[in-house]
Amino acid sequence: MTHPMPFSQALRERTRSVHEQSEGSSFVQELMAGDGSRDDYVAMLAQHYFIYRALENGALTMAADPVASLFLSPELDRLPAIEADLAFLLGPDWAGRIAPLPSTARYAARIDEVGESWPGGFVAHHYTRYLGDLSGGQIIRTILQRQYGFGSEGVGFYAFPGIAKPKAFKDAYRARLDAVDWPEDERDRVVAEVGRAFRFNTDLFVDLARAKSAAA
């Protein structure tokens, strides 16, 4: 079956509005502008721990799937870096000091669900998180270092030492998306799941802002 445009392009265009809504969250905008605080960053990173734990647990299951396994790469794994960042930022007892917000719990539960049973859905979440990290990670890391006084520690989440050329890596990832022989209805389901992932992110930023206000 021929398609009017590469799937990766269609995926990006069909989820553009919900992606922009997530990126435009006031919590994120304030953090990137230096109007947030170090504690805001730590709170966000703590929620990412639960999201990436679900993703990388799902990857263990999906490693046996002929399609999902094509997208797995140890150079992308974020959990070890997040754990090191949280240990630096919160201390050795960090694991007992964090808990998922309601939106994070729903997000992680959905990743757990697709990671057990639906390769296309898992790829949708994998794509949303990791390509986003690669796309903006270095810029965000630099901003955080400048705004909040971090050195090399505390922002390892945004460093990909095993990926020397992020653009080439992303291009190869998108080429694999384009090459997957999903029928049209499955492509539609994957697009919808990417949109769902972006909405989970938006909900998380709303929850973070709400928790910040409640603590003030």
Rank of each mutant, 00 (worst) to 15 (best):
A59D: 00
D181N: 15
T61Q: 10
I111N: 06
L45H: 02
I98P: 02
R187G: 08
Y130R: 06
A99E: 12
R176Y: 07
R12D: 08
K167R: 15
S25K: 09
L72A: 01
R210L: 10
I139S: 05
T61E: 15
A95G: 15
I163V: 15
A105S: 06
L208A: 02
D178H: 12
R187M: 03
F7S: 11
D112L: 14
R97T: 13
L11W: 13
V190K: 13
K165A: 15
K170I: 08
G162D: 10
R189K: 14
S25P: 02
G96Q: 09
P6V: 12
F27A: 02
G120Q: 11
Y107N: 02
F150K: 04
G136I: 03
S26G: 06
F205M: 08
A64F: 09
A68D: 03
D188H: 08
G121H: 04
Y127S: 07
F205R: 03
T2Q: 13
R38D: 01
T128V: 09
G121C: 01
F7H: 07
K165D: 15
E20P: 11
A192N: 07
L72E: 09
H3T: 14
E186I: 12
S8N: 12
G149F: 09
V67W: 04
D93S: 14
G149H: 11
A175L: 13
R196I: 10
L144I: 04
A159V: 07
R210D: 12
D35Y: 02
L101I: 07
I163G: 15
L76D: 14
P6W: 07
L45D: 05
P183E: 14
